[in-house]
Computed example of a mutant assay.
Amino acid sequence: MAEQQPPKIEFPCDNYRISVMGVADDGFHESVLEVVRKHAPDHDGQYTLRDSSKGRFVAVVVTIRATGEEQLRALHNDLKANKNVRMVL
């Protein structure tokens, strides 16, 4: 059985969606947006929030213009460095 390869992304990708799940607190979404702006300075500031069923966690969803794998890797690493982030998709 052949190993399945993940789909390749063609860069630039204008509608690259990132979901960041973390502890729901007052500054969480702002800290996520700060990291996003660092790596995608042309981000329009739009985001959506989704609360967990018990309200302990929140997902911040943003769409950026992805310019390459290096940008996405650095963005992912910086987001994971936030102590309140539980998952980055």
Rank of each mutant, 00 (worst) to 15 (best):
F11A: 11
F11G: 11
F11Q: 03
F11W: 07
F11P: 07
P12R: 08
P12K: 07
C13E: 10
C13G: 09
C13I: 13
N15F: 04
N15T: 08
Y16M: 10
Y16S: 03
Y16F: 15
R17W: 02
I18K: 06
I18R: 07
I18T: 08
S19W: 01
S19C: 09
S19Y: 02
S19Q: 14
V20N: 07
V20D: 05
V20F: 04
V20A: 09
M21D: 01
M21L: 04
M21N: 09
M21F: 04
G22N: 00
G22F: 00
G22P: 00
G22K: 06
V23K: 05
V23D: 09
V23H: 07
V23A: 03
A24E: 09
A24Y: 08
A24F: 06
A24R: 14
D25T: 05
D26Q: 06
D26K: 14
D26A: 12
D26S: 12
D26M: 08
G27S: 05
G27F: 13
G27V: 09
G27A: 13
G27K: 12
F28K: 02
H29R: 15
E30V: 03
E30C: 04
E30I: 13
E30P: 02
S31F: 08
S31P: 12
V32I: 12
V32T: 10
V32G: 00
V32C: 01
V32E: 07
V32Q: 01
L33T: 01
L33E: 06
E34R: 14
E34P: 04
E34C: 06
E34G: 10
V35Y: 00
V35H: 00
V35Q: 01
V35P: 02
K38Q: 09
H39G: 00
H39V: 03
H39R: 06
H39D: 08
A40Q: 08
A40L: 09
A40T: 03
A40M: 09
D42Q: 06
H43L: 08
H43M: 02
H43P: 02
H43F: 11
H43Y: 04
D44S: 14
D44N: 15
D44L: 08
G45P: 05
Q46F: 02
Q46C: 10
Q46L: 02
Y47G: 01
Y47P: 01
Y47T: 00
T48C: 03
T48P: 07
L49G: 00
L49D: 01
L49K: 02
L49V: 00
R50Y: 15
R50L: 09
R50I: 06
D51S: 13
D51V: 03
S52N: 10
S53W: 04
S53N: 07
K54E: 15
K54C: 15
G55F: 00
G55V: 01
R56G: 15
R56W: 05
R56D: 11
F57A: 13
F57P: 03
F57K: 10
F57D: 15
V58G: 03
A59Q: 12
A59Y: 03
V60E: 09
V60D: 01
V60C: 07
V61K: 13
V62T: 14
V62R: 00
V62D: 13
T63D: 01
T63Q: 13
T63Y: 04
T63I: 10
I64E: 10
I64T: 01
I64V: 15
R65T: 14
R65C: 07
